[in-house]
Design a protein around this nucleic acid. Sequence first.
DNA 1: CCTTTGGAGTTCAATCACTAGACTGATCAC
DNA 2: GTGATCAGTCTAGTGATTGAACTCCAAAGG
Lengths: 181, 181
Amino acid sequence: MLGNDYEGQDCGLARALEVIGERWTMLILRDAFYGVQRFSDFAVHLDIPRAVLTDRLRALVERGLLERLPDPDHAGRALYRPTAEGRTLWPALHALMRWGTEQFGDGHAARYHRHTVCGTDLRSGAYCPVCDMVAPLEEVESERVPTEASRTDPVSVALRGPRPMLAPLTGAETLAAAGPA
Amino acid sequence: MLGNDYEGQDCGLARALEVIGERWTMLILRDAFYGVQRFSDFAVHLDIPRAVLTDRLRALVERGLLERLPDPDHAGRALYRPTAEGRTLWPALHALMRWGTEQFGDGHAARYHRHTVCGTDLRSGAYCPVCDMVAPLEEVESERVPTEASRTDPVSVALRGPRPMLAPLTGAETLAAAGPA
DNA sequence: CCTTTGGAGTTCAATCACTAGACTGATCAC
DNA sequence: GTGATCAGTCTAGTGATTGAACTCCAAAGG
């Protein structure tokens, strides 16, 4: 959406938006947090034009929020994974996600995020009130409450959970979901 | 940037981005939280094309995040203020702002947000660790640490603070700042 | 070896959004 | 009434996004 820069603005928010404010970028990061790693899985799950996906992934890798590494199972293909720096966006992203579901929660499905070490549902900003800390992605599992309107693509099905955040979507998962209909 | 919708995505994040994901929208809300209320003040502070500002303000009013009311001091002009619903975005916006300043904190100025009832600096998500609560905008004051590179427009100067969030920028403030140079 | 398939892009024309700047109509200070 | 300011609108030019078609490569099947 944005495309670009807010050069006149000397505020952290403007800096943040220059990196993650473009259309699709936050959704790509969200998927990466959920364990999506392959180009084709992002594309299927997001319904995003591939040219845009290519561009956004490249930008995120350039910015150091994702890392691109060769897929051990398929020569010539790449996997995209959140870097440590990228994972620092988790609380902010969670806060936005929560706001969205709270505002429009009626007809839309909710997704729960739980702190695995204590079983507590996270508050806005991925804060665990029991442990008094921001729950890092490695300690979070998520589950989707299904609705009639849920997407049925293999990636959406595989991500219904409950499953740990960051756990890579395996080929078996997406194939099984797509599988013998 | 975005322009629009992510209709296929049944996720709170997508819903949120449909409302506040367009270019400029979050910066407009941020300014509104700081007390900017007049069209011209938004325009001066953001360096935003006026056609876009008109459009975004209209959309935010339509969505119920801002309210538009007649300016008591100037017939025919309007003021824009965050609604209660709009203010629920504060924690998410604060989290993003914090992330931006942390990522690029070196050369760029920081802005502090303090919980006025206890004097504590807020954590990401506007959380006050001392009071164990999210500090609502009404209980927050902010202050800008000035740098050489700071903007010098009247609105930026007036917002340096310390000053309470939501406190309206008066005509006197912006005039005094612009004043006898 | 040859062909086919599917992933991961790239390229392209058409569309849509954003931008800067000129313009308008209303209000206000003088 | 004149000029200035504000809050917009309009318009033309630019840039980003889109969907479809195209390419390149690796692996699988025969």
